[in-house]
Design a protein around this nucleic acid. Structure first.
Lengths: 131, 131, 131, 131
DNA sequence: GTGGTCTAGACCACT
DNA sequence: GTGGTCTAGACCACA
């Protein structure tokens, strides 16, 4: 499993790992019940510390996206139920607004954002039918 | 000038200040050439550390959104030219993607995001006719 | 013998086995002198590692609850004498306290706990008349 | 702030810290808005690693019991709202049952447990009126 | 000053 | 083999 990490980014490495694994699952590259690489293995591949991977895995587990089976390893959850947490949705909308504002100052208008949204949705939902 | 700051939020306070001033400008509540409150004044109003306000102003200046005239104060720039910095646009798209992914795990679909986008654009651009 | 094991739980599987066998004995579903399934048999039924069952049996034997007769198998002890180990009782009280604290933060009050205690005692002690 | 830590216990140190802080809050020794010792300070007092304290604080924050204000420190939340999470309550009842079972094998009967429950509740709810 | 992140490396319990 | 915990010590951003 290869992830794209940027150690210079402001977003912590463990969070980048979380994001990208979530993306892989959405794209169905990682499927329910699939085994994730072990903490040591992934830390070796990504050239980061095991603790950092561990933190990412723990966060993913906290979100109900993966599960760890004692002594066996870590697996993608069989059923990922979205929690409609009101508060988090409000936060997300707020983030979204800030993003739109920042975009505006980069000269990006609504149409472009709308296009991006479409592109991204297709990229994520486009599964692997035509592989 | 009243801003809505949340000290519990993960986004640093100076960044919240930056965001909200940018929003006020987009909404044309703050207009070009308008004078901003002094660092000391604003820090007093918002009950935050002057250094924090200062950092926010520096960032806004760096983005070309406000200008400091020595001895006179700080003013909204007369003309804010969007910098079409390719790299920053790519970063923004990346951010956007991560947001869509996170939204997806909260059960928020494309339609909802599309709606939000429309709402936000209207809220911001209400008087952006002559751009 | 069917036990309810949850591989996702935080309590180790061998401990879940220990708990549930203790429960079966309390409920007199397993009676003194009854033969327990062999390690291999039980591990096959429960689809878990033989080492795990073995560890559970060892723990139960350590507590004096079951006995192994070489070449014959494993049996529920004829007389289970509660050890009034002061230290263990103190530990238990400590555990109990932590549980009450955690319950409190979940909005569970003393009355509810008291009710639970009654329920559980009835469930377990239904035929404990002649102790 | 002095906590009683047992490095030999099975429960991890960070969890012991979490438990005991929760207890201090219930006893109103720590009151809403109170500042907790800094990570470094507490780690110095308890002779444990700062990371361990940090982990405890992060868990407490995740539970909504404390809040961190960037650069200022960590504080007891003003209002702690118990979340009536069905699933967690079920888990708690399960734990409670296992505890009753274990107690039974130590010769502790329902009456004793009932007494303990009363004692503990009084200890926790007894505030600091008579200090 | 504060907490958050990361590395290095160790030890442990579980399967 | 697996993940979880802990220590030691470093660096950074925030206020």
């Amino acid at each position: 499993m290869l992830l794209n990490l940027d150690p210079r980014s402001n977003t912590p490495i463990w969070e980048q790992v979380v994001h990208q694994i979530k993306e892989l699952i959405l794209k169905e590259i990682l499927q329910p019940e699939d085994k994730l690489p072990s903490v040591r293995e992934l830390s070796g591949t990504l050239l980061i510390n095991p603790n950092t991977v561990s933190k990412a895995y723990q966060e993913l587990e906290r979100q109900g996206i993966i599960e760890t089976l004692r002594g066996k390893g870590t697996f993608v959850s069989a059923s990922i139920t979205p929690k409609a947490d009101e508060q988090k949705i409000a936060e997300m909308k707020q983030q979204f607004k800030q993003l739109v504002i920042d975009a505006s100052y980069l000269g990006i208008d609504q149409q472009t954002l709308s296009l991006w949204l479409k592109e991204i949705t297709e990229e994520l939902g486009g599964n692997n039918d035509n592989d």
